[in-house]
Each structure stands twice: as structure tokens, then as C-alpha cells.
Design a protein around this nucleic acid. Structure first.
Lengths: 106, 106
DNA sequence: TGTGACACATCGTATCACGAAGTATATCGC
DNA sequence: GCGATATACTTCGTGATACGATGTGTCACA
């Protein structure tokens, strides 16, 4: 998948991954894998950014002697998903523009 | 529109704007305006990049005493549009993932 | 004992959209 | 004739950001 195309959906995608249940980095990667592959360095960068933007909150919790950081979506985060949904409607009309075939003899 | 989301479609969009007929910078901006606003600095950067990538060719031509650079799409350019079309199918399924509502009581 | 899964972190790099500013010509109103 | 506006292309600097490489540490299993 083209990197530039990926860029636009990553934030919304990560937020969507924790939309229903809190989750942690490693799990998020596994959940998204069927749809979209992303490396750990990329994900943690995104999570940090979303935290700074107050779209999610973090809580550390030990699990089998290993640290896990659970991420919880905020209202701002949900709003971000909604914004993505709206933007995507525009994208769809641009997609039509890009892929339309020239009809008749103009 | 979110810049990151825009990034992914810009190249394909510009190529689509010259897909049927050769065109020049100023005209391309006007044609795309109903779908997508972009500044001159952005467009010319993209055109240069697409030329380097051999997705289009350029020919200078004088018009009313002013220089115009006409851009012509190549086979590689058309292939790029096709690639976009394929990638977009993936994007659609990710869109489903992002926007799906949790059903029943899980 | 070592290999692989789990889990998170940091650093450097390359890509890229865009605003700002510049150059130059043509047209139109006053 | 003069200023404003449209046409047309260019260059520079900056900020955002995905990702590979690399590192830290734990746990399970053979």
C-alpha cells in the first residue's frame, strides 16, 4: 500500500482499534494486521501523538510481570473519527473524479 | 480537509486531471478546484515529482506572450492511477473497520 | 541456554504539502 | 497611462510524520 495513502487513515484507524475496548500497543498491531500492517515504531509514535492531542489517555498496568500501557479513547478521539468520516465523503467524490472514464466524444 | 488524508490522493488526482487532455498548471488548479483546493507551490512541486518519476512529460509553448508548460501523461502515469484504484479498494475495507458500530452486546 | 514471542522506547532520515515571496506579461477600469 | 487583477511559473524554508534500525527487558518452551 502506498505510504502517502496510508498516512491519511492511520490516526483514525488506531483510534478505531480502541474505540470499543481499551487496548495496548502489541494488541492493536495484531488487531489491525488483517486490514493494515504497521510497525511498532510507527504505532508508538502515533499513540504518543494522539495522547498529546488528548484523543486518548494512558494507564500503565502490569500483566504477567510485563508492563502494559492501556490506551483509552476520549471524546476528542471520537470526534476525530467523526471528522474522518466526513472527510472521507469528500475523498469518495474525488475518487470518482480520478477514476471516471471519459464518456462519449468530447 | 485533513492534510494527511489529502496527501494520499494528490498524485493520482493531478494525473487524472491530465488523463484525457494535456493541460498546464494554472488550468489544472482550476479544474481541480471543485473537488480539491491546492496552492500553486504544491501543484508545481507535484508536477516536478511526477516528471522525475516519468509519469508525465512536459512541453513548453507560448500562448499570448506568456509561457505555458503543457503536461502529458505517460503509460507509467496511467499505471499509477490504476495502482491508486487498487489501493483504494483496501482503503474502503479499512474505512469499514474504522466506522463500523459495535453490534449486539459484546 | 538460547530462541522466539511479548512489550515499549528512541533516534535519524526521507518524503512532502504549503505559505511566503518573487518574476513577468496581459487585460480592464478609471 | 496607471493601478489592480488575472495569468503563469519558480524557489526557499519549515513542520509533520512513517519507518527502519536499534535497544531494553520479561516470559515460555525446548
Amino acid at each position: 500500500m502506498d505510504i502517502q495513502l496510508k498516512r491519511g487513515i492511520l490516526d483514525a484507524c488506531v483510534l478505531a482499534a480502541i474505540k470499543n475496548d481499551d487496548s495496548y500497543g502489541y494488541q492493536i498491531i495484531k488487531d489491525m494486521k488483517p486490514y493494515l500492517e504497521l510497525s511498532e515504531s510507527t504505532l508508538y509514535t502515533i499513540l504518543k501523538r494522539l495522547e498529546t492531542a488528548e484523543m486518548l489517555t494512558v494507564r500503565s498496568q502490569e500483566h504477567d510481570g510485563r508492563l502494559r500501557k492501556y490506551y483509552h479513547i476520549t471524546e476528542k478521539g471520537r470526534a476525530r473519527i467523526e471528522e474522518f468520516r466526513r472527510d472521507f465523503q469528500e475523498i469518495l467524490s474525488i475518487y470518482q473524479f480520478i477514476t471516471r472514464e471519459e464518456t462519449e466524444n468530447e
